[in-house]
């Protein structure tokens, strides 16, 4: 199981909590300080997207954030319960973008920030898996 797991009602006000928890656990796992801003943003984007998918579909349900220390990597999973939401196109057509395209922009931010990212489907909806390397010297601390 995840080192730390967080489950929250799919509401915008809880996304900040998810960011704070993710960064705290990542720091403790040994993710480099210089990368924590990226972790914060990537988790925020993934959770915002999950919340938006729920809200757009008028769905209740929860967002699960799994934070796992894999010795050499730190894994973050963000899973929604919004059903089979299609993967929006990832593009950089920023100028054409309206406020409805925030979803695509969010995914574009994640893929630009995180080297190891996978957008797939979970048990009840979408699942975003992201991982970061851990500095070797931090493993023994």
């Amino acid at each position: 199981m995840a080192t730390v797991e967080l489950r929250f009602s799919a509401l915008p006000e809880h996304v900040r909590t998810a960011r704070l928890v993710a960064v705290a656990v990542a720091r403790r796992a040994g993710v480099d300080e210089s990368v924590l801003d990226e972790v914060r943003l990537a988790v925020g984007e993934a959770c915002s997207r999950a919340v938006s998918l729920h809200q757009r579909g008028g769905l209740d349900g929860a967002v699960r954030v799994g934070l796992t220390d894999l010795e050499k990597r730190f894994l973050i999973e963000v899973e929604d319960e919004a059903g089979p939401a299609g993967l929006p196109p990832v593009g950089s057509a920023a100028e054409e973008m309206g406020e409805d395209a925030e979803d695509a922009l969010g995914l574009a931010v994640i893929t630009a920030l995180v080297e190891d990212v996978e957008v797939t489907s979970g048990a009840k909806g979408g699942l975003i898996r992201m991982s970061w390397g851990l500095a070797p010297d931090s493993l023994e601390l």
Binding site: L41, E45, S48, M97, G98, E99, E102, L105, V109
Partner: peptide, 16 residues
């Protein structure tokens, strides 16, 4: 202190 794509979307909306 923090800005994500939702915020970017709002700024783009404002620009439009």
């Amino acid at each position: 202190d923090f800005l994500d794509s939702t915020g970017l979307g709002v700024l783009v909306g404002g620009l439009k």
